[in-house]
């Protein structure tokens, strides 16, 4: 186990930068500047930082939904930067992505959404006629069973609840048989309890397959609870990289700025207090 975990890094970022071209001038907003880190197998990295810090850009640069301006992205032996369209398609298959607000194709069935994870593997006519190879369908059923939605396969995606939809999103990403998971704010529109369930599911699956993951997440306590490493981003720069335990108040102030962090903390404490209060009252009612 530990041999795997400390093995060769699956993902390496070298001096990754992204500057959005502004409409008027030559130079624009710098979203990422000189980001470098490595992710070994089985490691779940929590990416935290204030909104606008470049978390979303960083994740999208890795599978080149956003074109990086400079730097290198190594997935195994391949440098993803500079690949042509066809080769990029083949490399994207290796990277599963889970989205904020699920991003399922709402009007397709749950099964079609999961099978769409195989699109990079099958020719157009198969996907067009919905005649996927037998092993793909078998895998899709197994994944739906794993996320607890086996009986929902023929429902349309927009008939599911938020938590269920995110589970379909997870199954879709896993259908790709990925070597890396990119997770963009998986809990953004979920209630606290469902959020924890989804995070638990993601980390469990990563542990089962020794899958590395980068989880872009705004909820710091949730990140500390579920990830094995935290990277803090501020204004496109890495300002913290360490274990969840070593994430001190000073480090958080560095990431979020003094005011924001205190405000966030207070908000969280209030949430916790409200939660505890509700639990107490509920207990009273039950008794």
């Amino acid at each position: 186990m530990s041999a795997f975990a400390s093995g060769a890094p699956v993902l390496e970022l070298h001096h990754l930068s992204k500057t959005y071209r502004s409409k008027t001038g030559a130079t624009g907003d710098t979203a990422l500047s000189d980001v470098s880190f490595r992710v070994p197998r089985g490691e779940v990295v929590g990416l935290i930082g204030p909104s606008g810090a470049g978390k979303s850009t960083l994740i999208r640069c890795i599978n080149r939904l956003v074109e990086p301006t400079q730097g290198e992205i190594r997935l195994g032996d391949t440098n993803l930067v500079g690949l042509g369209t066809g080769e990029l398609r083949r490399q994207r298959r290796r990277i599963g992505m889970i989205f904020q607000e699920y991003a399922l194709v709402e009007r397709l069935t749950v099964m079609e959404n999961v099978l769409s994870g195989r699109l990079g593997y099958v020719p157009f006519w198969r996907s067009f006629t919905r005649r996927f190879p037998g092993q793909d369908i078998e895998r899709a059923y197994r994944l739906l069973d794993r996320v607890g939605l086996l009986d929902q396969a023929d429902k349309r995606a927009d008939a599911l609840s938020g938590g269920q939809r995110q589970r379909v999103g997870i199954a879709r990403a896993l259908a790709q048989e990925p070597e890396l998971l990119l997770v963009d704010e998986p809990t953004a529109s979920l209630d606290p309890k469902t959020s924890r369930q989804i995070m638990r599911l993601i980390t469990e699956i990563c542990a089962e397959h020794l899958l590395p993951a980068i989880v872009n997440i705004h909820d710091v306590p949730l990140a500390q609870q579920f990830t094995s490493r935290i990277i803090g981003l501020r204004s496109g720069k890495v300002v913290f990289d360490g274990s969840p335990a070593s994430l001190s108040d000073a480090a958080l102030t560095e990431i979020y700025g003094a005011e924001d962090w205190t405000a966030m903390q207070q908000e969280h404490e209030q949430d916790e207090a409200a939660d505890a209060d509700a639990r107490l009252r509920l207990a009273g009612v039950v008794k």
Binding site: N63, L65, R89, R90, Q91, R92, R93, I95, M97, F99, Q100, E101, A103, L104, V105, E106, R107, L108, E112, S116, G117, R118, L119, G120, Y121, F124, S127, F128, G169, R172, Q176
Partner: peptide
């Protein structure tokens, strides 16, 4: 976002059209 998600699976142009936009 739905189109982006289909693109991220490594789908080709025609497949993105078929799965992301047409539905």
């Amino acid at each position: 976002r739905q189109i982006e998600a289909v693109t991220a699976t490594g789908a080709g142009r025609a497949q993105v059209l078929n799965y992301g936009i047409v539905p």
